[in-house]
Amino acid sequence: MTRPAYLQPRTLVLLILPPMMWAGNAVVGRLMVGSLPPVAMNALRWLLVGLMLMPLSMRIWGDMAAIRERWVYLAAIGVLGVGTYNAMQYLALQTSTPLNVTLIGASVPVWMMLVGAVAYGQRLHARQFLGAALSILGVLLVIAQGQWEVLRHVRLVPGDLLMLLASLAWALYSWMLARPPAAMQGAARPDWDWAAFLQIQVLFGVIWAGLCAAVEAFMAGGVQPPVWPATWSTWAAMIFIAVGPSILAYRCWGLGVQAVGPTMASFFGNLTAIFAALWSAIFLGQHPRWYHPVALLLITAGIAVSSASTRQVRNGAGHDEA
């Protein structure tokens, strides 16, 4: 009997490696607190990615006319994905833990549902509201650190709030990828492979990230870490997040989603919090509290309920919902 696509060893590797890398990115981001300013760290990360992608994406330099024609869309996804989401994640890690950041990041499907309803006219159903409620309850449990009176006194960790905003930015980015303009659909879409398309996003994202890093340096007034890695360990960390969570995870995730679809892949994405707990315990000495697995179960249940609703709508009504 043929095994489902997501049980094939190659597919499992493709879907498990990205959350492992993304969790490592969160832990490294926490370890780098005090070594590099967070926004400058994001700019340097993607500058390194752009340099590494050069040999794989040389074709874009001969296709500048196509980029100019679509620059508004390309700049928007570059700013949201490369320039904003990752910078806000590193900012969040200044005051929050990798486990909190990855758990709150697991609420992205809820934000995607809300963005879809508000900006793209996606119809919402009862099961999706239930799924959203479960996921939001899980996020609130993390923010409250298992003590609901924390919410009553509005004693919120700044990093957790920043990660909520980062999740919203990622939801906007994801919808823009799922519903591109006509110039990026079908035969009108330029013949860009994964490396070329990522490189274009990086080009626009690095410009924005560099401007934000300059603002960060100006606001700090000189009382911040150097904007350039000063030790070999810092350089090693930067190379890891450029190669692993950026290039390798991006490529593996794209192939995995092609194999099993975005709904099934989203469940593997929730492994990020599991790996974050493991890496945090090993490298940071930060062990999970009782509310972390409970929150993960709530968030996962919410996504499962919402996904089941989406599948029913697709199968029953026959119209497309992202």
Score class of each variant (00 low, 15 high):
Ser107Asn: 07
Met176Ser: 06
Val313Ile: 11
Val79Thr: 10
Leu165Asp: 03
Pro98His: 03
Ala117Ile: 00
Met20Asp: 12
Arg45Phe: 07
Val101Ile: 04
Leu56Gly: 02
Gly29Ser: 05
Arg3Val: 10
Thr234Asn: 14
Arg251Glu: 02
Ala188Met: 13
Met1Pro: 14
Val142Phe: 01
Ala92Gly: 14
Leu161Gly: 13
Met20Trp: 08
Gly159Asp: 06
Leu161His: 10
Gly50Cys: 09
Ala265Asn: 06
Val13Pro: 05
Gly78Asp: 08
Gly83Tyr: 09
Val79Ala: 12
Arg30Leu: 00
Trp170Lys: 00
Leu296Gln: 12
Ala5Glu: 13
Ala178Ser: 14
Pro18Ala: 13
Leu162Asp: 01
Trp253Asn: 13
Leu56Thr: 07
Ile77Thr: 13
Val157Ser: 07
Leu17Thr: 15
Gln147Ile: 06
Asp191Tyr: 03
Val101Gly: 00
Ile200Leu: 05
Arg59Lys: 11
Ser307Val: 05
Gly105Gln: 03
Arg70Cys: 02
Ala26Arg: 01
Gly318Val: 08
Ala217Ile: 00
Gly186Ser: 09
Val227His: 11
Phe240His: 05
Ala183Phe: 02
Met54Tyr: 05
Leu48Gly: 12
Arg127Phe: 11
Phe268Asn: 10
Leu14Cys: 06
Ala308Ser: 07
Ala126Ile: 07
Pro226Gly: 11
Leu177Ile: 10
Gly116Phe: 05
Ile67Ser: 10
Cys212Ala: 15
Leu103Pro: 02
Asp193Arg: 08
Asp191Glu: 14
Val206Pro: 01
Met163Cys: 06
Gly131Tyr: 08
Val260Trp: 11
Arg314Lys: 12
Ala187Leu: 14
Arg289Ser: 10
Trp194His: 01
Pro98Arg: 03
Met41Gln: 15
Trp232Ile: 13
